[in-house]
Amino acid sequence: MESLQQYGRNKFKRSPLYVVPDYEALEIHSSDSDIIYSKTAMPTNKVRGYLIDKLEHPTFKLIKLPFEFLPTKPQSQLPPAWILEIVDELSIDAYSLGMITGLVYEFSVLERNIPGKGRTLTMCFSNYSIRFIACYNSTTRTTTGILFTMVGNDTADSIYQHIEDFLKQSKALFQNHCLLPMALLYSEMHNVIEVASNRRVNRVNYELIHEGNREEWENYREGLRWSQLSLNLARKITNYLQKQLDIMANQELTKTLPMDIVVERASIREAFDILEPRIAQVTFHIEWRLQSNSDYMARISRKLMRQDTRASIELTRAARMDSSSMKVIAVMTMIFLPGTFFATLFAVPSLNWDKEEVVGERFWIYWAFTVPFTVLIIGLWLAITQRSQMGDMWGSR
């Protein structure tokens, strides 16, 4: 087990995550009969002390740490060492911390009994744009989490906003370990729905087929594929929440619980019953969109293929005309070539323009060579290029 913990620490140290010092703290706690939700900026030198501060009453604390991917970062931009110190202090599973540094869509919860701290849960969550790790102590009913959000990523900003909205609306549940998974489920579902109902894509006139149109569809299909990964994460979260709700239901049958806990669990069940059925609905919608996308891409391909075929036919027709012209030129050249050749070869004046008898006595020699060789060359050309046609012609006779 210790080797896995060390592996996680080393993986985090070597990760290409550069934490940008622009931290923000979300906190929920109770004061007398009121439940207080607050959001404050947090300077770097106070983050560690704030997270490991052991309060006497249940508290929900979440720190947002913006990050950038720097694959070739200098030594000065390694992940800050105080993050590992916080992980050790809060008994967060270091192996889970190492796992969220990669580009893996993951949600997991590890339960451990730690001497002196009791039952603790380590929750880790990661997708392309955010990384999240948290610890819940069932003895103190305190949640402490670190949320890494990608700088300049609209999806990361949207997910964080949805998490914040859910925490505000459900702040009365801040002592329950299911609050964070519910917030993550809420944010993932909204993220998926936003991609699946992309209005900008839906307004495109797909009957006007062009390369820009086709690229738009391909980008949309890529977004739907990413949404399928998010839906898989949502299913993992709902499976975990379903098990926890079943455990709670069994406890309520065997124990007499305080009314505030019963109300709290009923609220979680109500929120779960609202979100869980939407997964199947959104899954069907995304699958239908992907099928529609594939059908339309096939239609575009067929139309472009027809256009290419017509263009090929026109090119073939033009090439045939060019071929006929070249053939005429070649035949004419072939007819006149022997005469030209022998006229040059002999280079003997055969016509006496300065005498009464222009045609010399030996002019017949020119024709004696030219005519046979012309016939010979044409015959050779026909024999070589038109052999099959001539064979068919003679065979038919």
Rank of each mutant, 00 (worst) to 15 (best):
V104D: 05
V104W: 08
Y105L: 05
Y105T: 14
Y105H: 15
E106P: 10
E106D: 09
E106T: 15
E106V: 13
E106S: 15
S108P: 10
S108Q: 14
S108E: 02
S108L: 12
S108C: 12
V109I: 06
L110G: 11
L110H: 15
E111G: 11
R112T: 13
N113Y: 05
N113L: 11
I114L: 08
P115M: 05
P115C: 10
P115H: 09
P115K: 12
K117H: 14
K117Y: 06
K117I: 07
G118T: 07
R119H: 12
R119E: 14
R119C: 13
T120S: 12
T120K: 12
T120C: 14
T120H: 09
T120A: 10
L121F: 03
L121T: 04
L121W: 02
L121E: 05
T122S: 12
T122K: 07
M123S: 08
M123N: 04
M123T: 06
C124H: 13
C124I: 01
C124M: 10
F125A: 04
F125N: 00
S126R: 05
N127K: 07
Y128T: 13
Y128V: 13
Y128C: 13
S129E: 05
I130K: 02
R131Y: 04
R131P: 07
R131N: 06
R131W: 04
R131E: 02
F132D: 01
F132W: 05
F132S: 01
F132A: 00
I133K: 06
A134F: 02
A134K: 01
C135L: 08
C135Y: 02
C135K: 11
Y136V: 09
Y136R: 07
N137K: 10
N137F: 01
S138K: 08
T139W: 08
T139K: 14
T139Q: 14
T140Q: 12
R141T: 11
R141Y: 09
T142Y: 01
T142G: 08
T142H: 03
T143R: 02
T143K: 04
T143I: 10
T143W: 03
T144D: 04
T144Q: 11
G145T: 03
G145A: 11
G145P: 01
G145C: 07
